[in-house]
Design a binder for these strands. Structure first.
Length: 204
DNA sequence: CGTTCGATGCACT
DNA sequence: GTGCATCGAACGT
C-alpha cells in the first residue's frame, strides 16, 4: 500500500519514526529498485539550524515550504543527490531525509549504477548491504536525481510503501554530517543494522 | 584503529 | 568567492 498524503501531514518526528520499515520504490526504464528504510533524519522548521529553511525561503529550499508528501531532492557537495520526504503542512518547512535502505528489489541494477560512479571505475563491486548505505549512495543505486525534485510520493515512479515489514528496534541519536543542530536527537535508525551509515558498531 | 583530504556543482552572500 | 544534510582513499598511530 502506497502511503497517502495524510501520512506525511503530521509532526515530522512521528513521520520519521514510522518511515523506518517502509519501502522506498523507484520505477525507471531499466527496471524497478526498492529498499526497506533503515535510517532517517528529521529537519524541522526555520528554528532548526541544520534545516535548509533556517535561512528562510530560497529557490533551493522552496519544496520544504510546499505541501507534504512530495520529494525534496537537492545536490550536495556537487556530487550527491539527497532525497527527503516533505512533511507537515504548507508553510511549515520540514522534511525527513532518507539516509539508508536495505536493498530489496533490483539488486543487480543497483550494483550496475553504483559501479558507474566516476570514483568507482575499476573498483570491486560493493557488497549488497553497502549498496544503499548512506544518502548519496541510495539515490545513486535507485537512480533518483534532481529531476525527481517535487515529485509526489503518492503516485508515479517514486513512492514509499507499507509492505507490513516490522520496523525493528528503533534507536534515536543525533544527526550526523552537520555542523550545527547536533544537539537534537532527530536521527532514527534500525539498531545495529548493517546498512546504517556512519561508524559501525564495535566489532566484538 | 584513527584522522585528513580531494572530487565536484551550484545556491547563496 | 564560500560552504556544504557525502564518499572513500590515503595516510598516521
Amino acid at each position: 500500500m502506497i502511503l497517502p498524503v495524510d501520512f506525511y501531514a503530521r509532526p515530522t518526528l512521528d513521520v520519521a519514526r514510522e518511515l523506518i520499515g517502509m519501502v522506498l520504490v523507484y520505477r525507471s526504464a531499466p527496471g524497478t529498485t526498492s529498499g526497506r528504510i533503515v535510517e532517517v533524519e528529521a529537519y524541522i522548521g526555520e528554528d532548526d539550524p541544520a534545516c535548509h529553511a533556517a535561512v528562510g525561503r530560497t529557490v533551493r529550499n522552496a519544496p520544504l515550504y510546499g505541501p507534504p508528501g512530495r520529494a525534496y531532492v537537492y545536490l550536495n557537495y556537487g556530487l550527491h543527490d539527497m532525497m527527503n520526504a516533505v512533511t507537515e503542512e504548507e508553510g511549515h518547512p520540514s522534511a525527513v531525509l532518507i539516509r539508508a535502505l536495505e536493498p530489496l528489489e533490483g539488486v543487480p541494477l543497483m550494483r550496475r549504477r553504483r559501479s558507474r560512479a566516476p570514483w568507482r571505475k575499476g573498483k570491486p563491486a560493493v557488497a549488497d548491504h553497502e549498496l544503499c548505505r548512506g544518502p548519496g549512495n541510495l539515490t545513486r543505486a535507485l537512480g533518483i536525481t534532481l529531476a525527481d525534485n517535487l515529485r509526489p510520493l503518492t503516485r508515479g515512479p517514486l513512492t514509499i510503501q507499507d509492505r507490513g515489514i516490522a520496523a525493528g528496534d528503533i534507536a534515536w541519536d543525533s544527526r550526523i554530517g552537520i555542523r550545527v543542530g547536533t544537539d537534537r536527537p532527530w536521527r532514527a535508525t534500525v539498531a545495529g543494522h548493517q546498512s546504517v551509515s556512519g561508524r559501525r558498531p564495535p566489532t566484538v
